[in-house]
C-alpha cells in the first residue's frame, strides 16, 4: 500500500480544479504527471502532500485518510518539492537540507550523527556533495532544485512528489535531474511538461485534463496520437523503437 487519491475533488471558492481524480502510485519507480497548463497537476500534488484539504473524496496514505494524520507523521512518510522555492534567509546549502530533519527529531533532540549522515547522504544522492557550505542565494536554478530534492530526501520519505522540477532549467540540467529520479530511493511522482521526457524517464504516466485523470499506464500504452490530440490539442506522430517511443509534433 502506498499513496493514493480516491475520487478527489477540490473546488476552492467554488471553482472546480479537481473533478474526481483517482490516482494510485505504482509499486515502485517514477510516475510522470502530464497535462496542459491548468489541468490540475500542481493542485493534485499539493492535495496529495496534504497541503490543502479536498472538498470531496480523500487522499489515502497506506489506506488511512491523510486528513486524519498528524502533519509530522505525513512529513516522515512523503516529501514535496514545489516549484520556485525562494527564501530571504541567508541559509547555506547544508542548512536548507537540514530543514528536512525536524520531522524525524524531537523538539529538544540535539543534532545527531544520524542527522548529519542523512544530510550528507541526501546531498550525495542529489549530486550536491561537497557543496554544503555554499550560500543558497548563490546557487543556479538547477542547483536550487537539487538542493530542494536533497532537503526532501533528508526527510527519508517513501514517496517524493516533485512539481515541475525541470522548470527554468537548461536542457543539460533537465536531463541530469531526470536521470536522478530513479536513484532517489523513493517512489517518485513528478509533474512534467515535456512528453518525450516523460516517456523516456517515467515508468508510468498519468495524464490529466481539466481536473480529471484521463489515462494512466506505461508510456507506450498511454501516449498515442489520439490522446495527445484530445488532451493537448496538437497533432503528433509517435515513433516506436523497441521499448522506447519518440513523439514528433507538428
Amino acid at each position: 500500500m502506498s499513496l493514493s487519491a480516491e475520487d478527489l475533488h477540490w473546488a476552492p471558492g467554488g471553482v472546480p480544479i479537481l473533478r474526481g481524480v483517482t490516482l494510485r502510485l505504482p509499486g515502485r519507480g517514477v510516475l510522470g504527471l502530464v497535462g496542459p497548463n491548468g489541468s490540475g497537476k500542481s493542485s493534485l500534488l499539493r492535495l496529495m502532500a496534504g497541503l490543502r484539504r479536498g472538498t470531496g473524496g480523500a487522499v489515502l496514505l497506506d489506506g488511512q485518510p491523510m486528513a486524519r494524520m498528524r502533519r509530522r507523521d505525513v512529513a516522515r512518510r512523503l516529501a514535496l518539492v514545489e516549484q520556485d522555492a525562494a527564501t530571504a534567509s541567508a541559509l547555506s546549502v547544508r542548512e536548507v537540507v537540514a530543514l528536512g530533519r525536524p520531522p524525524r527529531r524531537g523538539a529538544w533532540a540535539p543534532w545527531s550523527a544520524a542527522d548529519e549522515a542523512a544530510v550528507a547522504a541526501a546531498l550525495a544522492r542529489a549530486g550536491m556533495q561537497g557543496r554544503g557550505d555554499q550560500p543558497w542565494a548563490t546557487l543556479s536554478g538547477g542547483e536550487c532544485q537539487r538542493v530542494q530534492i536533497a532537503r526532501a530526501l533528508a526527510q527519508e520519505p517513501r514517496e517524493l512528489l516533485l512539481d515541475e522540477p525541470t522548470n527554468h532549467l537548461d536542457i543539460r540540467h533537465q536531463l541530469e535531474l531526470l536521470r536522478l529520479l530513479p536513484h532517489l530511493g523513493a517512489r517518485v511522482v513528478v509533474a512534467l511538461h515535456d512528453l518525450n521526457q516523460a516517456a523516456a524517464f517515467c515508468d508510468e504516466i498519468a495524464v490529466m485534463q481539466d481536473g480529471r485523470l484521463v489515462a494512466q499506464g506505461r508510456p507506450a500504452q498511454v501516449l498515442d496520437a489520439g490522446l495527445i490530440r484530445d488532451v493537448f490539442g496538437v497533432e503528433a506522430r509517435i515513433e516506436r523503437s523497441g521499448a522506447g517511443l519518440r513523439i514528433a509534433f507538428f
Binding site: 496534504g50 497541503l51 502533519r71 512529513a75 514535496l80 514545489e82 522555492a85 525536524p102
Partner: peptide, 23 residues
C-alpha cells in the same frame, strides 16, 4: 525555543513549512 525548528521551516514559506510537518 520549543518551536524554534518549526520557525526554521518557514524559511521557504507556509506551504513548505506544512510540507515539513508543521501544523
Amino acid at each position: 525555543l520549543w518551536r524554534a525548528r518549526a520557525l526554521d521551516a518557514f524559511a521557504f514559506g507556509e506551504d513548505a513549512a506544512a510540507a515539513l510537518g508543521v501544523e
